[in-house]
């Protein structure tokens, strides 16, 4: 079985985002960019399925600028077998990403597509579900466990009240939650090896997808700032403050 893992290049999660003064977006010039953390978890899960003998090949895909090659090389260094860059400098929305991924799924015929549950830049949490709609496949979102058994996969999902398990017919879509696994670091020899793994470059038009945005960003602004309050000296003072607000047993 082949596994497709879409990976997005995003602002590193340790970097504090700064809104641009002209209100057009978040400043991405000269800041550290990394693979979306949920996608690292997706790559790791695919590798574990390959190590278990469930998967035979892992194909990493990214839609983005030439620099997204770095993200794909990271996936290859972790253990993906080959990569596809669908190159574009435009900001592509989840619906169009899902259409491109549908095109790749048609060509590659994977048994599983493992995406992140959300990209931590736009926090959309849509692409996997949309891809599932377009392919007509079942979806196991927010996965904390993935078990392939024969021609189906059991996915345990993190839901608001706790955990839920669903059984999905393969091929299927999985989106990762944080506790699915802990991604490995690529070793130096594997980083070297990744440089010679195949990386194909395509464009959205190769898949017949129009990436013109449907949603216009009118402006991006800072959230209302929360001013720091006061430090209280001790528990007594805290109790007094809380009681003054009506908080007590």
């Amino acid at each position: 079985m082949k596994i497709l893992v879409p990976v997005k290049r995003v602002l590193d999660y340790n970097v504090k985002p700064r809104v641009k003064a002209d209100g057009t977006g978040v400043d991405l010039a000269n800041v550290k960019m990394s693979m979306n953390p949920f996608d690292e978890i997706g790559v790791e899960e695919a590798i574990r399925l390959k190590e278990k003998g469930v998967a035979t090949e892992i194909v990493a895909v990214s839609v983005g600028p030439a620099k997204a090659q770095e993200t794909l090389r990271t996936a290859l260094a972790m253990g993906a077998d080959r990569a596809i860059l669908v190159q574009t400098d435009d900001a592509v929305e989840p619906l169009a990403i899902a259409k491109i991924l549908k095109g790749i799924a048609d060509a590659e015929q994977p048994g599983l597509v493992i995406l992140g549950k959300q990209a931590i830049d736009d926090d959309n949490n849509q692409t996997g579900q949309m891809l599932a709609a377009l392919t007509g496949w079942a979806q196991g979102t927010f996965a904390s466990a993935v078990n392939v058994e024969g021609d189906s996969v059991n996915v345990t999902r993190e839901v608001d009240g706790g955990l839920e398990t669903v059984k999905l017919k393969l091929p299927a879509i999985v989106t990762t939650d944080l506790r699915l696994n802990e991604p490995r670091y690529a070793s130096l020899p594997n980083i070297m090896k990744a440089k010679s793994k195949p990386l194909d470059t395509k464009t959205p038009t190769d898949y017949g997808v129009d990436t013109a945005p449907r949603v216009k960003v009118v402006k991006v602004s800072e959230p209302a700032a929360r001013s720091a309050g006061m430090k209280v000296a001790d528990v007594d003072e805290l109790v007094a403050k809380l009681k003054a607000m009506g908080v007590h047993s």
């Binding site: 985002p17 978040v26 736009d122 926090d123 009118v218």
Partner: peptide, 16 residues
């Protein structure tokens, strides 16, 4: 809507 974990707020308009 919030983006970047609420570190920015985007005003967006749909054309669908």
């Amino acid at each position: 809507r919030p983006i970047y974990a609420g570190n920015a707020i985007a005003t967006v308009e749909s054309s669908d």
